[in-house]
Structures are given as C-alpha cells and as structure tokens.
C-alpha cells in the first residue's frame, strides 16, 4: 500500500465522528453539572458553578453511599482474587476426578441470566438473616467463573517444570501456589482485579434487591433514588452522576492495559 504523506487519513473522519458521538453525552454531563439553574437549558455553562457539587453531595448521603460501595467492591475484589485463584490452580495444575466436568459446568453457568437465579438467591439471603447488610452485598459474589477462567488459562501457559522442580525440592502444593504460581500470575490477577472492581462499582440489580435504606445503599442505588427526587434540577443531578461515575473511569484510565488484555483472553479462548 502506498501512503502519500501530508494527505490526512480518511479513516480519521469516520473514527472522529464515532468518537464525537461517544463523548458528547459525557461532555454534556460535565457541562451541565457546572451550569447554574437558570442557564440549565444552554448548551454550555455561562459561568462555572462549582457550588453544584457540594450542594448535590449534601442533598443525599453520598459519603455513606461511597463507603458502602467501597466496602462491597473491595470485598468482591478480594474474594475473587483469593477464591478464584485457588479454584483456578486446582483446575490448571491438580489431577482429581471429574475435573473437566466440574469446569464445564462452571463455564456453562456464565450463560445463565441473573433473573434466573435472583429469586432463590434473594430468598437464601433473607433466610440467612443478611437482608439489608454488607454480608448480603458481598458474600453471594465472593467468587466468579470469569476470574477462574482467566486465571486458569494464564496458569496453563506457565511452564510446568517450575512447579515440578519445587515439588521435587519437597515444597507442598499450597507453597508452590503461593511462592511460585501467584507471583508469576500478576498480569492475570490485575485483569481479574479490574473486571471485579468495575463489576462491583457499577453493579445495580443485586444491591437493589437486598438493601432497604440509605445505611446500606451503594452509589448507583443512591444515584437512582437521587434521580427520582431531583429530576427538575439537572445541574445537581449531573453533579451527582459525575460523582457516581468517576471512580470507575479513573480505574479504567490507569489500568486500561489489564482490561484490554482480559478481553483479548476471552477472544482467543474461543
């Protein structure tokens, strides 16, 4: 292909237009969060109303929502990192009866929609006495199949000679996992951590089912309650929306590579 220099690449026209469509709602969100109420219908804020943010944050218990979301998300991330790693190690390295059957059943559950499992899962949480508590937000999601698949796939690419050598040196399986396998799995662990964080931070349906008031509500739930109360005040609502959306965007900006790597893994698995 001959590339003539200086002529702008026509692909940028299409990609630029698509980028504009993608970014415009975000631009509108940030712009509106800085508008004053009388100017809310203008495309652009006439002057920046930074006061919208403290006003929105004090209009609803956002600090409490943030705390609940942080606890829930960290619990889920920690759970996935530990429980998924242990399970992935068994599937990647240990020989035991029904190994492939159990793994296939787990992978098949990824096809199951949430609405199929939520009624008995909700019932179980109520019967355990966890309704409207952090336990209800965290315990049912301590492990997930996606993380197990990502980690198992990655562990299988590690040379087996490493664990065999340690085994001959008399190290136990768990010591090998902790001292040999886990340090080598750091990229895959980062991928799982990013996906789990985004899942936890943005999750909505399950917290909606198992929480009842502001003491346990997460940010996304709080935002939806806020929406129903502050509909006529788009400037405050958009300030609240920015506050709810920003942590996930920041994590994404910093850990983009780990996220894309995870998706690449999903693709090559096919």
């Amino acid at each position: 292909m001959v590339v003539t220099p200086r002529r702008p690449d026509p692909r940028h026209l299409v990609l630029g237009a698509a980028s504009l469509v993608t970014v415009a709602p975000f631009a509108w969100m940030v712009a509106t969060s800085l508008k004053s109420l009388p100017n809310v219908q203008h495309m652009w804020p006439l002057e920046f109303e930074w006061g919208n943010y403290p006003e929105a944050l004090s209009a609803a218990p956002f600090a409490r929502y943030y705390l609940n979301t942080a606890v829930m998300t960290l619990g889920i991330v920690a759970g996935h990192l530990i429980l998924d790693t242990l399970a992935a190690y068994a599937f990647a390295r240990l020989r035991f009866p029904l190994r492939n059957t159990i793994f296939a059943v787990l992978v098949a559950t990824m096809l199951v929609p949430t609405f199929l499992t939520m009624l008995p899962a909700f019932d179980l949480v109520v019967r355990m006495g966890w309704y409207d508590s952090w336990a209800a937000l965290i315990v049912p999601r301590l492990a997930d199949v996606f993380g197990i698949v990502v980690l198992r796939t990655y562990m299988q690419t590690l040379p087996r000679e490493l664990d065999e050598a340690a085994l001959v040196d008399g190290a136990g399986r768990m010591r090998i996992l902790w001292h040999v396998v886990v340090p080598l799995c750091r990229p895959a662990l980062a991928t799982v951590a990013v996906f789990s964080f985004l899942f936890g931070w943005n999750d909505f349906l399950w917290p909606l089912l198992v929480t009842a008031d502001d003491a346990t509500r997460t940010v996304q739930l709080g935002l939806s309650v806020f929406t129903s109360k502050y509909g006529p005040y788009p400037h405050l609502l958009m300030a609240g929306t920015v506050v709810a959306a920003v942590p996930a965007i920041v994590i994404f900006l910093f850990l983009q590579k780990a996220l894309v790597r995870g998706l690449a893994g999903t693709g090559s698995k096919e």
Binding site: A18, S19, T22, V23, P25, F26, M29, L198, W201, N202, F204, Q220, L223, S224, T227, T241, A244, A245, A248, I249, I251, F252, Q256, L259
Partner: peptide, 12 residues
Amino acid sequence: IFFLPVVTSSIA
C-alpha cells in the same frame, strides 16, 4: 474513547 461508556455505570 470508545471504551468510556463500557466502564461507566448503566445508571449514570
């Protein structure tokens, strides 16, 4: 840019 909406919460 294309990924921005993917990582932003549905509610937002």
